[in-house]
């Protein structure tokens, strides 16, 4: 429960939402965009964030799109994760998503909320990082589209008042061979020690990671090493680990050394399986 006097707005268009944001901003009301809201409510009750007003974007129809558009498939930011899983248009996303939080919570957590979250795992972004997706963002200057690699660096690099409307993915990516693996401290529930998602395209493997560093990432350097088929797998993995961004996490879920041990095993498992896949 949030204790403060927090205002609630539910605009029905993108423009209204942005306008509302700047009105509230001007009134010094610390506005925040709200989709599933699970993170705002949990971090808010712990006083980690202090919204003064929330702008619920779920009534904006663009944020609820789940459809084909020319060469692309559109995922609206307000779609709950379980909705995407049930439709299962993009199996890599489905499987990555199904490891997040728990089923009931995913009825509420939205794809946009997860990828834009404060909690640093943001695992649902991994498939989009792997698939050269396009991001549709609303802001003061209207709607803009960006290739994800231009706007995502650890987090989405939004300007003030911007919010995510849609994630677009080229249809050719929807059915590529993939694996996604989440390893935890123990058994099958909890935050990740590491989550790794992988696809194969034109005989090259792409990898994206969450839980390894305090941000999700995809790294060309890491991929180059892992795809160096001239070398044995162990050596490729060792070279890839040298290219990891810093810092590697060292926290209650697991030490840095243990995470790297798990990473080695996981990468090996994935490479073996993916190199067999056509």
């Amino acid at each position: 429960m949030l204790a403060g006097n927090i205002e609630y707005y539910q605009p029905s268009t993108v423009n209204e939402a942005v306008e509302q944001f700047f009105i509230l901003k001007k009134e010094n009301k610390l506005p925040m965009y709200y989709a599933g809201g699970t993170e705002i409510l949990t971090l808010g009750r712990l006083n980690i964030i202090h919204p003064g007003a929330i702008i619920d974007i779920k009534a904006i129809k663009e944020t609820l799109s789940h459809e084909s558009y020319q060469e692309h498939f559109i995922f609206g930011a307000s779609l709950p994760l379980t909705y995407i899983e049930e439709k299962n248009i993009f199996p890599l996303l489905t499987q990555t998503s199904m490891e997040i939080a728990d089923h009931t919570a995913r009825n509420k957590i939205t794809i946009g909320g997860n990828v834009c979250g404060n909690i640093f795992y943001r695992e649902a972004v991994l498939p989009f990082l792997l698939c050269d997706s396009t991001v549709v963002v609303a802001g003061k200057e209207g709607q803009k589209t960006h290739p994800i690699q231009d706007i995502f660096n650890k987090t989405f690099q939004f300007e003030e008042g911007q919010f995510l409307i849609q994630l677009l993915i080229e249809k050719k990516y929807l059915t590529l061979p993939f694996i996604t693996i989440k390893k935890r401290q123990q058994w099958e529930t909890g935050y990740p020690l590491i989550t790794v998602a992988c696809i194969k395209i034109e005989n090259q493997l792409r990898f994206a990671f969450s839980g390894l560093c305090p941000f999700p990432f995809r790294s060309q350097k890491v991929e180059t090493e892992l795809n160096n088929t001239l070398l044995p797998k162990e050596e490729r993995i060792n070279h890839a680990i040298e290219q990891l961004p810093t810092p590697v996490l060292n926290d209650v879920e697991g030490s840095k050394e243990y995470r790297l041990f798990v990473l080695r095993n996981t990468l090996k498992e994935m490479i073996v399986e993916m190199e067999e896949k056509e």
Binding site: Q186, W187, E188, T189, G190
Partner: peptide, 9 residues
């Protein structure tokens, strides 16, 4: 973060 055993485990 303090995680008792769950259904299925």
């Amino acid at each position: 973060t303090y995680r008792p055993i769950r259904f299925g485990e």
